[in-house]
């Protein structure tokens, strides 16, 4: 990873960008859902990072900027909305595509998600095939 930093910028960007295309960060506090999502993303050729809560997620984002953020909303410390807000208000991070994945299915919750700049809001329980297809479309 560190080697990339010594490349001239265009190549650095290319390498980084190519790598970034395939990076996905999955955040959910339920271990089984996390496990399932990790498997799905890996199976479809993405580089997966996992976080079990919001704090972990924010730390990981600092280290490696993912192309897509798969976010649960209801979490014990920092909720998904807050993470999205922080990402979208940061110059560095606002290009990251945010996908909410949540059991909150009220119209108001969904609207809030999109208002915060989410690219997609998926309701739990979800279809694995659907989810994968949608993510592929987003990251094309």
């Amino acid at each position: 990873m560190d080697q990339n930093l010594f490349l001239p910028y265009p190549q650095f960007k290319k390498r980084y960008w190519m790598e970034a295309i395939k990076k996905v960060l999955v955040v959910d506090d339920d271990p089984y859902i996390l496990m399932s999502l990790e498997f799905l993303m890996k199976k479809n050729g993405y580089d997966v990072m996992i976080a079990r809560n919001g704090t972990e997620a924010l730390e990981l984002i600092e280290k490696q900027i993912p192309a897509l953020l798969l976010l649960d909303i209801m979490m014990p410390d920092v909720d998904g909305y807050e993470i999205c807000r922080q990402v979208k208000s940061s110059e560095k991070l606002k290009a990251i595509k945010v996908v909410f994945l949540s059991a909150k299915t009220k119209e108001a919750d969904i609207q809030k998600g999109y208002d915060l700049g989410a690219a997609l809001y998926v309701k739990k329980p979800f279809s694995t095939k659907e989810l994968v297809k949608q993510i592929n479309d987003l990251l094309k």
Partner: peptide, 12 residues
Amino acid sequence: TPVTSIRAMAEI
């Protein structure tokens, strides 16, 4: 939540 994980795992 448990329903979600059950479905996801079963589908996988």
